[in-house]
């Protein structure tokens, strides 16, 4: 009897199946919605609120792209992906872009046939220990028990770090960050290691956050960024330069507060003019209109504003800019010129 349910919905699904159009950018415009893959829950980076609205640092990238391409920051279909499903979802075309704190590595770029369009967060693996342990450097961790997520790059980094420093450790394998918090608090391990942003977010949830310290050593490079499929360079350019627009806006002093004023007429700074479309034809080259970057920046402000709102020092996550400051402030953020 209920077979009809399946047949019925299959028929509808079959009707909805359209032929694939030429490029992802055209697909997105035709669809009127951006399918953006995000994490199914990482504090500060992607999380649904009580009304089912997605919030976070990675989510902001999706919204900026949607605003640039579709003129509507809410025209995003957020597709939660897990560590296991994210790459297939992108490769199969289920999502147009993936913004799910994914580390840019050689094999993901080359072998898995993806294109990382940039870096929106420079992360690195760190260690958290209870203050009572009396450790001030990761070099003093010889013989420690370490809570470590299995099957991740952090596991390999940890092994490398202890081998290089000629130390031994005892791993306590755990599956998820939630489990790690519980194990660490219960004293099942002396040390918890994962990406430094994750450590900060975890520490922020502790009742007595002051009893735990994050050690100064960062033992790996984890450049996290949005990615698209190989081969569709027009679409890759759109996502890349939307991210660059956010970063450049901070460098050029364009904020959500003054963007209306700055874009109302040509300013003294020609690069600002080119970015905001009051001069030149950058938008046209990208296959968009002249105001694309204006819209992307208006959604949540420039990179710095997005950072401060979602993961910055004022939030419970409380991350300092660190490596993620502009190159003019001693960080690594360096958007190529808008010319």
């Amino acid at each position: 009897m209920k077979k009809s349910v399946i047949l019925g919905v299959a028929t509808i699904a079959g009707l909805a199946a359209g032929a694939a159009a030429a490029g992802t950018a055209d697909d997105v415009k035709a669809r009127g919605k951006l399918n953006c893959g995000v994490a199914s829950g990482v504090p500060g980076f992607a999380s649904p609120d009580a009304n089912g609205e997605w919030q976070g640092f990675d989510v902001a990238v999706c919204r900026a792209v949607a605003a640039a391409v579709l003129d509507d920051p809410t025209a995003v279909e957020f597709i939660p992906t897990t560590g296991k499903t994210r790459f297939t979802a992108l490769a199969s075309g289920e999502i147009d872009m993936l913004a799910r704190n994914t580390t840019w590595t050689f094999s993901r770029d080359v072998d898995l046939k993806f294109e990382f369009v940039g870096i929106n967060y420079y992360d690195g693996q760190g260690f958290m220990v209870p203050k009572a342990l009396g450790v001030s450097s990761a070099k003093e961790l010889d013989g420690a028990t370490v809570c470590i997520q299995t099957g991740t790059t952090t596991e390999l980094n940890l092994a490398d770090f202890f081998r290089i420093n000629n130390m031994s450790y005892e791993p306590v394998p755990i599956e998820t960050n939630a489990e790690a918090q519980q194990q660490y608090l219960a004293g099942a391990c002396d040390v918890y290691t994962t990406d430094a942003s994750g450590l900060a977010a975890t520490r922020a949830t502790f009742e007595n956050a002051g009893d735990h310290v994050i050690l100064p050593e960062i033992i790996s490079k984890e450049p996290l960024g949005p990615l698209v499929r190989h081969g569709d360079h027009e679409w890759g350019d759109v996502v890349r330069w939307t991210l660059n627009a956010l970063i450049a806006a901070e460098e050029l002093g364009v904020t959500s507060a003054n963007i209306d004023e700055m874009s109302s007429g040509a300013t003294d700074n020609p690069e600002v003019n080119r970015l905001l479309g009051t001069e030149g034809t950058l938008g046209e080259m990208l296959g968009l209109d002249a105001n694309w970057a204006q819209r992307a920046i208006k959604v949540g402000g420039n990179y710095g504003e997005v950072f401060a709102k979602n993961i910055g020092e004022e939030t419970p996550i409380g991350l300092a800019r660190g490596l993620n400051a502009q190159w003019t402030d001693g960080g690594l953020l360096y958007a190529p010129p808008f010319r």
Binding site: P43, S47, P80, K84, T176, T202
Partner: peptide, 21 residues
């Protein structure tokens, strides 16, 4: 596989800074 059933939602809810932990 990334569907938000009740168990998946616990993860999403914990990712909200208000309820992390």
């Amino acid at each position: 596989i990334g569907l938000f059933d009740v168990i998946g939602l616990t993860n999403g809810i914990r990712a909200d800074t208000a309820w992390n932990g």
